[in-house]
Amino acid sequence: MRSKLMVLFAALLLAACQTTSGTHQVYPGSTGPEGEPLPPPPGPVDAQPLPPPLPVVPPPLPDYPKTAEQISGAAVTSLMKRARQYRQDGQPDQAAGTLERALRIEPRNYFVWSALAQAHLAQKNYAQAESMAQKSNALARGNIYVTLENWKTIAAARNGQGDADGAADAAAQIAALQARLDAAQPDTP
Rank of each mutant, 00 (worst) to 15 (best):
R2G: 09
R2M: 08
S3N: 14
S3F: 12
K4F: 12
V7T: 08
L8Q: 12
L8E: 11
F9C: 07
A10I: 13
A10G: 14
L12H: 10
L13P: 05
L13S: 15
A16W: 11
A16E: 08
A16I: 10
C17V: 10
C17A: 13
Q18S: 14
T19E: 09
T20E: 14
Y27E: 13
P28T: 09
P28S: 11
G29Q: 11
G29P: 04
G29I: 01
G32A: 11
E36D: 13
L38H: 07
P40Q: 07
P40D: 13
P41W: 07
G43Q: 12
V45F: 09
V45H: 10
A47R: 10
P53E: 09
P53M: 08
V56D: 12
V56R: 08
V56F: 14
V57Y: 06
P59Q: 07
P62N: 15
K66G: 04
E69F: 11
G73K: 02
G73Q: 04
A75F: 05
A75P: 02
M80S: 03
M80A: 04
R87A: 03
Q88F: 04
Q88L: 11
G90W: 05
Q91S: 14
Q91L: 15
P92R: 12
D93Y: 05
Q94N: 13
T98F: 01
T98A: 07
L99V: 03
R108Y: 06
N109M: 03
N109L: 00
Y110N: 01
S114Q: 04
A117K: 01
A119E: 06
H120A: 05
L121P: 00
A122V: 05
A122W: 01
K124H: 13
A127T: 08
A127L: 08
Q128H: 10
A129R: 00
M132S: 15
A133Y: 01
N137R: 09
A138G: 13
G142H: 02
N143D: 05
N143M: 02
V146I: 10
N150F: 02
W151E: 02
W151N: 00
N159E: 13
G160Q: 05
Q161R: 11
G162Y: 10
D165F: 10
G166L: 08
A172S: 12
A175K: 07
L177Q: 02
L177E: 02
L181P: 02
P186V: 11
D187E: 11
D187W: 06
